[in-house]
Each structure stands twice: as structure tokens, then as C-alpha cells.
């Protein structure tokens, strides 16, 4: 087995590989080709054999299984990745830019003393690694040149397609010294949040409200519209953070993923975390004052205008 150009670390939770794990394979293959070398994948904890089978897709050269522990524990992940890097010397370690990825990737980069770039949306290598990412709340993209010959990268979900096909990777068990019992951050359990009387994931038509509503009292306008349209009210994160609506109304990465027939986004700019929760809607309609708001990138119809002018007219039309 040759030393890999890229080591990609898969992510799973409660027995299921997460989608981003398969996207990492595509990003990893691209980068391994550009650098010139093999793509290796690490699967740490849980049913590593089953996960290795699922990850054995086109372009993967080797899979290292680390059968220690069950669920994600950052001490175990950090220790295992560092030992794998010691043993196999990859030029780049790829992590998912997920909540768990960001719970250990920065520590791995720090401990190995390699530069870290997070939330990559594109990567290229031509004698030098360059990484594209967003800045200033998605208003601009920047390209960063990374010095050195080893790197740690976290990759944004949904930016690369999932790898498919069947691979012929070598699957090897890798023994590590790290012991979950030594972890200083012990997972006690999980809890589903956001239950309650309304299930926005069941709604055919969602009227979704964001920061543009400005004040809690103005929500009445949105509920009036939803009633007139026979729709359900959902929201973006800031509305829930402010305590104006309960967590079960939140659409997005940390809230619910919804796929209604119609999603009417009112005063929502369309941050990537929000879009992750609603891009599967059949028809997306956005009302926003900012013509450059990213929500218009995924909308089918849009009105560039003030919601306080447009929404009362809509209510009239439907009543």
C-alpha cells in the first residue's frame, strides 16, 4: 500500500454513515489526483466493517477501520487520526465541516502543526494547495493559498456529489492506543429536540419567516398570511434563537429538513445552514429586499421588495 495523498475521515452517527462521508470521497479523489497519490479513508468507531463496505466506492484505494468505541468521541477520533497520520503520512487530511468535524479537526491540525482551512467549497492543487471558501456571510468567496506540504481541510456538505460505484479498496484494521475510557468529554446520550404540536416536515405549504420580520409583534402578519393560504408557519434560526417561535418551527441544518410542495421564504437571506433544510422543496418562492440575497439563487420565483408592503397585499388576495 502506497502512502496516500489524501486521508478522508468518514462520519457516522447512531449506526448511519452521514451523507457528507460519501461527498468526502469525491472531494478526496479529486484532490488525490491533483496531488498525485492514493485516497485512503478512515472509519472510526461503531460497526466499522459495515461502514467500510458502504464506503468502498469508486476511487477509494484503501480503507482503515478503527474498531474502538461506538459513537463519536473527540478524544478517540483525534487520537486515531493522529496515529493514522503517523503511520501513513498523508499530504492532506480531509474532515467533514460538521458539528462533530469541528469538534476534533482543529485539535488534530493544531497537534500535528499543519495549516487548517475549514468549510472548503472548492480545492485545487498545482504545486500549491488553494482552497475556496465563503466569507462575510456568503457575500464573497475567497481563495486561500496554503503554505507547506501537509494540510488539514474541512469540507462543506453538499458541495461535492456523493461518490458512487463499487470500489476495490484494500480494507485493513488499524490498531490504536487511544482508549475511550480515557476521554475527558464523555457522551451521556442523545436527545431529539423540536417535538411538539406542529410537524413542519408534514406540511404541503410552508410560509417561512426570517430576520427580516424585525420584531416579534410583526409575526402576526406571517400567521395571518399562513391562515389565509391554509399553510403552516416555519422559520429560520434567528427567530428561534430570539425565542419568538419554538424549536419545532426551525428549518435548517440544526432544525428540520423539509420538502413541501411550496416554500415561501419571507425575509430570509438564505444562509447555507438554512438552505440545507429546504432546498428539496418543489417550488421555492422568496420575498426579500436584497436582490443579492443567496435565497434567490435557489428560488423559482422571487419578489425583490419589502415584506411589509407585499405580505398585506398577499393576505388581501387570498382572503
Amino acid at each position: 500500500m502506497a502512502d496516500p495523498a489524501v486521508l478522508a475521515v468518514a462520519e457516522h452517527r447512531r449506526g448511519e454513515l452521514r451523507d457528507v462521508s460519501f461527498e468526502l470521497l469525491t472531494a478526496g479523489r479529486e484532490l488525490a489526483d491533483a496531488i498525485g497519490g492514493e485516497l485512503h479513508v478512515a472509519v472510526i468507531s461503531g460497526d466499522v466493517e459495515a461502514h467500510a463496505d458502504a464506503l468502498n466506492r469508486e476511487g477509494v484505494d484503501a480503507i482503515h477501520t478503527v474498531p474502538v468505541g461506538e459513537e463519536f468521541d473527540h478524544t478517540v477520533y483525534q487520537g486515531a487520526v493522529e496515529e493514522l497520520v503517523d503511520a501513513h503520512d498523508p499530504a492532506t487530511v480531509l474532515f467533514p465541516n460538521s458539528v462533530n468535524g469541528l469538534d476534533y479537526a482543529p485539535a488534530v491540525a493544531e497537534s500535528l502543526g499543519v495549516p487548517l482551512v475549514t468549510d472548503a467549497i472548492d480545492v485545487a492543487y498545482d504545486d500549491e494547495l488553494t482552497v475556496t471558501r465563503e466569507q462575510y456571510g456568503s457575500k464573497v468567496e475567497t481563495t486561500l493559498a496554503v503554505e507547506g506540504d501537509r494540510y488539514a481541510l474541512t469540507v462543506r456538505g453538499g458541495e461535492w456529489p456523493a461518490a458512487d460505484g463499487t470500489g476495490d479498496a484494500v480494507v485493513e484494521s488499524f490498531t490504536v492506543d487511544v482508549d475511550p475510557a480515557d476521554s475527558g468529554a464523555r457522551v451521556q446520550g442523545y436527545e431529539e429536540v423540536g417535538g411538539g404540536d406542529v410537524d413542519i416536515a408534514d406540511a404541503d405549504v410552508l410560509v417561512s419567516v426570517g430576520r427580516g420580520i424585525e420584531e416579534e409583534d410583526n409575526l402576526e402578519l406571517i400567521f395571518d398570511l399562513a391562515e389565509a393560504m391554509d399553510a403552516t408557519v416555519s422559520s429560520s434560526r434567528p427567530i428561534v434563537d430570539n425565542g419568538w417561535l419554538p424549536k419545532n418551527r426551525q428549518v435548517g441544518q440544526s432544525g428540520k429538513v423539509v420538502t413541501p410542495d411550496v416554500y415561501l421564504a419571507i425575509g430570509i437571506s438564505g444562509a447555507v445552514q438554512h438552505v440545507a433544510g429546504m432546498k428539496g422543496a418543489e417550488t421555492i418562492i422568496a420575498i426579500n429586499t436584497d436582490p443579492n440575497a443567496p435565497i434567490f439563487d435557489i428560488a423559482d420565483y422571487g419578489i425583490v421588495g419589502d415584506l411589509f408592503d407585499v405580505v398585506p397585499e398577499l393576505i388581501d388576495d387570498f382572503e
Binding site: V140, E141, L144, E147, G148, Y301, I303
Partner: peptide, 20 residues
């Protein structure tokens, strides 16, 4: 540090929304 910003640009809009 090891990172240098080499480019900054506005992403091209991918919008094919019908603007009313």
C-alpha cells in the same frame, strides 16, 4: 501564518428565479 488570501470576488449568481 501559512494562509494567504489570493483572490476575493462576488460569487456569480446561480439564480434562475423568475423575478416578479
Amino acid at each position: 501564518g501559512a494562509l494567504t488570501v489570493t483572490e476575493m470576488y462576488e460569487p456569480e449568481s446561480e439564480s434562475d428565479a423568475e423575478i416578479i
